[in-house]
Design a binder for these strands. Structure first.
Length: 502
RNA sequence: GGGCCGCUAGCUCAAUUGGAAGAGCAGCUGACUCUUAAUCAGCAGGUUAGAGGUUCGAGUCCUCUGCGGCUCACCA
């Protein structure tokens, strides 16, 4: 495109040609390294420790210094006349290379053609320079892959968010803290698996392509299967299939998987995101609460070494027990509205209008209450908090409370001002479940929204009998945001959704 | 989808009221045997996101388009 970039690419292609002319393959098939850079530095320290006990402290290269072979990307180069220092980085860390008199004529020629960004392999003895930098005195140098494009700036890194997300590999090369975030993400997911496996949960995989998108109320993505000539939805939840497995006799199951919702994109929403759902037979939402607070606290402890974490300007303490607050109390406390006194949508809406809220007249009572939560309550829930006992009309898959059929046994967990989990004592009465689905359909029809067909296959399964069950859904991306102190979901998803650049 | 803000060299950023588009890094040439944001000397590098308009003159003002960020709406 622009001549500057073209010129650099052209210069590097010329270097490629010169390398090939000398009969050297700039993209060889394999290279065997003996150590990662981290292991090499550790080896040097170990060897120095032993040496110190034998003799007086000596530095610099000696015949007894251990030899290593490492490989990685060159991230810096400093020419000093007859010697050249380079920084070589691999996924474990970095080490300095010293190239000088130990290289033969051919390898000195290769050294001249090496740019920042190239992938190389290097062997030699470990030593420390007089500034004590762990260094390999390179005796053998191999080009493993020539880079044809310049890397982002070494000091400021890459900061343009558009480029960071579209070319995440550059972000990972230039910004080490980004790499760390995704390493922590991986450790969190491993820790979740360990926690659940230890408790006897079975990890399962259920379909992403579904004939009807159930288990949540969200706009699905639609795709088409050609051989079957049938439309399918990408799942918006794993709930209904996991319950089928509870019916099938797996008493504890979970799935960690990608969920797709065709809705707005924001700092807290990506169209595809990762959700943990778990179901435990013979448990209720109280058992699930205990498990969740323990799980998050354990994970934080295991991954970060503490259950007190910094999130923005706040310190969040995950140590159980978390605050438990009834939804009614919470809304009353933060907005002043007691929704029990407004049993229908109209009266509640009128009350909300008094608070100068802009209220959509289409919304039913459940959605109005939801709006009260997100406007007044959610932003205030910095410390981990369970909101308990939601109105039945906003929870068609949850079982009503034994003493109050207007409420269900459901909780949502909040931390850092975000919803991170949703759980309930699962409704297992097939007849009531059918009525709830029908009721929901009626309401959606009245609101003029798209009405999904009822998942008859799920109702059929329920009719065979599902044990009383506690179910849980956790937004993994938001949990990772909390534990990595990130304010945008795009910082914890490697390739967040962006509009295609034309 | 609405509102606000942004887009200048490969990267990070300047450019006074509308008055000659600049620096650092990266690159190229040269010097240098312990540097590490190496240093020193020199060179080169631009469709100012795109299109149109106002003006003697536009990176700067106006309109439209594209992409991004924040935010609102949407969101069990």
């Amino acid at each position: 495109m622009t001549s500057r970039l073209e010129r650099i690419a052209q210069q590097r292609r010329q270097k490629l040609d010169r390398i090939r002319t000398r009969g050297i393959n700039p993209y060889p098939h394999r290279y065997h390294r003996s150590h990662t850079t981290q292991e090499a530095v550790a080896l040097l320290k170990q060897e120095e420790g032993e040496r110190e006990t034998l003799t007086l402290r000596t530095r610099g290269l000696r015949d007894s210094s251990p030899s290593v072979t490492v490989a990685g990307r060159i991230t810096a180069r400093r020419n000093m006349g007859k010697i050249t220092f380079m920084d070589l980085r691999d996924s474990s860390g970095k080490i300095q290379l010293l190239c000088g008199e130990l290289l033969d004529v051919d390898q000195n020629q290769i050294l001249k053609e090496i740019d920042i960004g190239d992938i190389i392999g290097a062997s030699g003895r470990l030593f420390r320079t007089k500034t004590k930098e762990p260094t390999i005195a390179v005796s053998d140098l191999t080009l493993l892959a020539k880079s044809l494009r310049p890397l982002p700036e070494k000091w400021h890194g890459l900061s343009d968010v558009d480029t960071r997300y579209r070319q995440r590999y550059l972000d990972l090369i230039a910004n080490t803290e980004v790499k760390e975030t995704f390493q922590v993400r991986s450790r969190i997911i491993t820790a979740i698996r360990q926690f659940l496996n230890q408790r006897g949960f079975l990890e399962v995989e259920t379909p992403v392509l579904q004939p009807s998108a159930g288990g949540a109320l969200a706009l699905p993505f639609i795709t088409h299967h050609h051989a079957l000539d049938q439309d399918f939805y990408l799942r918006i939840a794993t709930e209904l299939h996991l319950k089928r497995l509870i019916i099938g006799g797996f008493d504890k199951v979970y799935e960690l998987g990608r969920i797709f919702r065709n809705e707005g994109i924001s700092t807290k929403h990506n169209p595809e995101f990762t959700m943990l759902e778990s179901y435990e037979a013979y448990a209720d939402y109280n058992d699930v609460m205990k498990m969740l607070e323990e799980m998050v606290s354990n994970i934080s402890q295991q991954v970060l070494g503490t259950d007190k974490i910094k999130f923005g300007d706040n310190i969040i303490k995950f140590k159980p027990p978390w605050q438990r607050l009834s939804l009614r109390q919470a809304i009353k406390e933060y907005s002043g509205i007691d929704f029990d006194q407004f049993p229908d949508a109209d009266s509640l809406r009128a009350e909300m209008l008094k608070l100068k809220m802009e209220v959509d007249p289409q919304k039913d009572r459940g959605r109005l209450i939801d709006e009260l939560i997100s406007t007044f309550v959610e932003p205030n829930l910095m410390q981990p908090t369970f909101l308990l006992d939601y109105p039945v009309e906003m929870s068609p898959l949850a079982k009503v409370k034994p003493d109050d059929d207007r409420l269900v046994e459901r909780f949502e967990a909040f931390a850092g001002g975000m919803e991170i989990a949703n759980a309930f004592t699962e409704l297992n009465d097939p007849i009531e479940q059918r009525q709830r689905f029908l009721q929901q359909q009626k309401e959606r029809e009245a609101e003029g929204e798209m009405v999904e067909s009822i998942d008859e296959d799920f109702l059929l399964a329920l009719e065979y009998g599902m044990p009383p069950t506690g179910g849980l859904g956790v937004g993994i991306d938001r949990l990772v945001m909390l534990l990595t102190n990130q304010q945008s979901i795009r910082e914890v998803i490697l390739f967040p959704q962006l509009r295609e650049k034309t």
